[in-house]
Design a protein around this nucleic acid. Structure first.
Lengths: 191, 191
DNA sequence: CCTATTTCTTACCATAGGTTAAGTGTGCGG
DNA sequence: CCGCACACTTAACCTATGGTAAGAAATAGG
């Protein structure tokens, strides 16, 4: 399956599309391949693109006042990544986005995205469902972070996202779980 | 402004609506007044309605294995509340929803909501933007919970939602901030 | 194949926040 | 206007996780 076709497949899971609409979509997404360790977005910049990952791995993080990185998203194949706040408002981002592997991405600029949603309003439904699910997930993660122990969150992650452990260094996973790499080591030892 | 009109006002901030569409919306939302301390949703039940709060205050929370309540949402005037996961999947909820004040709500059932989104597809845009913003907020809150101190989260909340402190007991605010009431007391003393 | 760098672990002490338990207001229903 | 439930505070002690520093193991590049 070609890459834009993969994207159409996911769109059509949640909304109907005519052939004309599919053609519009194919024309506005640009396919790129990005090398590992590439900074796609740097804090202070406006987030120019929304990315669909057909293959690869990226992380979103921010850097606090002490200069420490804090990862809040790790995304792999067939997922979207961006800083939605900056992308849709076109204001400077607080976050960074970086490739953790060589990655195949489909990208769209803010201008083209807004235009696309007007030309193919049925995509609003797809993104409504996408953001709705993302929101529900974020709330579940928030509750886990507030009220479960680091041990439980680690176990949950092994259950739900075992692939990540195969592809991402533990330092990043520790940060994603909200703990230090040292604490993650301690947790892993005690099992 | 009548209550359903208030809702139309918010819809029209983010999407266009014809008079016919407005009429459909007016007909599917039911207006109710609920007394304080009413359990709108209990864990194990399917979340039957999506609520728009025209006036009042509600909280969402869950009860852990030890029987302790953990609040993750406090919502007031002109906001939506529901358990979206249960509402859209029509599977049993993990959460509770309760009124903290006598509240005026506009409610819609799952069946009517799905129908409404088909009959007035332009509402998909409204909810896409609503969930997108809610998702961005949830991620910001997640980052604050993971990486800021309780003191900073307390100060942020006073800055951003001072109204809540006028209307909601501190026990609930403490839980929302992810700390115990005792810790919140400690923080308030040290200022 | 060897070296440099990255990744991961261990051990120490420090600390934010949880736990428990007791107390002081304060407002509302009878 | 009394009493009781609710809201909030205080204090002493405890624990999970952080910070720091060092070293071991694994991986990548020359």
């Amino acid at each position: 399956m070609s890459e834009p076709n993969k994207l159409l497949y996911y769109f059509k899971k949640w909304t109907d599309l005519t052939e004309a609409e599919e053609a519009i979509i194919m024309s506005v997404f640009e396919s790129v391949v990005i090398k590992k360790k590439n900074e796609m977005l740097v804090a202070g910049q406006v987030c120019s693109h929304l990315y669909f990952i057909t293959k690869g791995c990226l992380r979103s993080y921010y850097i606090d006042t002490k200069g420490t990185e804090h990862i809040y998203q790790i995304r792999m194949d067939n997922n979207w990544i961006s800083d939605l706040e900056s992308f849709f408002s076109q204001k400077p981002s607080k976050y960074h986005i970086e490739t953790l592997e060589d990655s195949h991405l489909l990208c769209i600029t803010h201008e083209r995205m807004e235009q696309l949603l007007v030309e193919v309003p049925r995509l609003e439904r797809y993104f409504r469902i996408l953001f709705q699910k993302a929101y529900v997930n974020a709330l579940n993660r928030l509750n886990a972070t507030m009220w479960k122990t680091a041990i439980d969150r680690y176990n949950d992650m092994i259950q739900e996202h075992p692939e990540v452990f195969q592809r991402v260094p533990l330092v990043y996973i520790a940060s994603y779980l909200g703990i230090t790499p040292e604490s993650l080591s301690r947790i892993r030892r005690q099992k």
